[in-house]
């Protein structure tokens, strides 16, 4: 196996196979769902928010390993964090979590979860990094 294969297995497949925070919340304070029309990847996020913190977050949806793994990683990262901090998460942060290089098309898969998160907590339905486009 190449280094890329190993990284892919360790970083992506672990979360894809054993997703953290997968599911839905019964009475969420916030829910947002988004999809990537190019490939049909779909992610919904439910949030419980109290005292300006993300008390609980769950994601659901379907798609390729990269879209689902990045949702899992992101949920793990933000649970319990103050909204102010969550709002600062950038595409670079997500790519660092994933830890493998991706072409521009797969970048959309990787960033769908962050786009869903930002639209949910921030009301910004845009691709991260394309806010000015």
């Amino acid at each position: 196996m190449s280094e890329w294969d190993e990284l892919f297995r360790e970083n992506i497949l672990d979360h894809y196979r054993n997703p953290r925070n997968r599911g839905v919340l019964e009475h969420p304070d916030l829910t947002y769902e988004d999809a990537n029309p190019l490939c049909g990847d779909r992610i919904r996020m439910d949030f419980k928010i109290s005292d300006g913190r993300i008390e609980e977050v769950r994601f659901s949806g379907h798609g390729c390993s990269i879209s689902q793994a990045s949702a899992s990683m992101l949920c793990e990262e933000i649970e319990g964090k103050p909204l102010d901090e969550v709002k600062k998460l950038s595409r670079e942060d997500v790519l660092e979590m994933l830890g493998i290089e991706l072409g521009p098309v797969r970048l959309k898969c990787a960033l769908l979860a962050l786009k869903t998160l930002k639209a949910g907590v921030y009301g910004l339905p845009q691709w991260p990094g394309e806010e000015d486009a």
Partner: peptide, 22 residues
């Protein structure tokens, strides 16, 4: 068990160009 986009991504590592999607 493998999404077609993931298939195409791994294949691309070896220079194999296939289409994936709908």
């Amino acid at each position: 068990g493998v999404h077609p986009h993931d298939v195409a991504t791994v294949l691309d590592r070896d220079g194999v160009a296939v289409r994936a999607g709908h």
